[in-house]
Amino acid sequence: MRNTRIDLAPEVREKSIELLNARLADAIDLKLQAKQAHWNVKGRNFIAIHELFDAIAGRVDAQVDELAERVTALGGVAEGTLQAVTKRTTLAAYPLRADGGDHVARLADALAAYGKAARAAIDAATGFGDADTADLFTGISRAVDKDLWFLEAHLEG
């Protein structure tokens, strides 16, 4: 870990970096899952769902950048390679093939898992004294809940 003038104790920064990298892997995986769904969705309400998946991927991509930049600001190395993501992700594997409704349900499941992990990260970062990292995860949690609402609306009826 490199030195920085950020006034958090080194052990707090180390814990934050580990937490951020863990969720970075999930975010990268989630973004790729949303793009997989976006590229391959077919069927009823195609354009609405196709565009929703792309919008979700875009929002998660912005979160990826925020997570990675927080890691580096704290003096760490953002672990965003495919190899690192494959080792670290906690999300369930996404199928290569699915129908439209199944894409919605599977992406909703992935978003729900990501949101749950973000809320746990809020508690963890608060617990070891990094309010800024907790705040970053609070913003992610709020955005994920909204995207999950959009997806779940397609599953009703």
Rank of each mutant, 00 (worst) to 15 (best):
L20D: 00
T133D: 04
R119K: 08
D130K: 09
R13E: 01
A125V: 11
L155K: 13
T89C: 03
A73E: 11
G115P: 05
N3F: 11
L8Q: 01
A92Q: 06
I140Q: 10
L24K: 02
W149Y: 02
T126L: 09
A134Y: 12
R13G: 09
D130M: 10
A134E: 01
L111K: 08
A124P: 13
D147R: 08
L82W: 06
R97S: 15
V77G: 06
W149H: 05
E66N: 15
R13F: 10
A113M: 02
V60K: 00
G157R: 07
Y94H: 02
T89E: 01
V144E: 04
Y114A: 12
V144H: 05
G101Y: 05
D99M: 05
F137P: 15
D147E: 06
K87Y: 15
L155M: 08
V85T: 13
G127D: 02
F53H: 00
L24H: 04
L107M: 11
G127L: 10
T81F: 11
P95Y: 05
K15M: 04
A78I: 05
Y114V: 08
D7E: 10
R59S: 08
T90P: 10
D102G: 06
Y114P: 00
V41I: 10
R13M: 07
H38C: 03
I122D: 00
D147H: 12
I56M: 03
A92K: 11
R70F: 13
S16L: 03
A48H: 07
A55K: 12
T126V: 08
S141N: 03
G127E: 03
Q83A: 14
I49K: 15
A73S: 10
K35L: 14
L136R: 03
R5P: 13
L67I: 14
A121D: 05
T126Y: 07
R106Q: 09
L155V: 12
N45D: 15
V77Y: 12
W39M: 13
D135I: 08
S141P: 12
E79M: 09
A113V: 11
I47D: 13
L19N: 02
L107H: 11
L32T: 13
T81S: 14
S16H: 03
E11K: 09
L107D: 00
G139F: 05
A110K: 11
D135S: 14
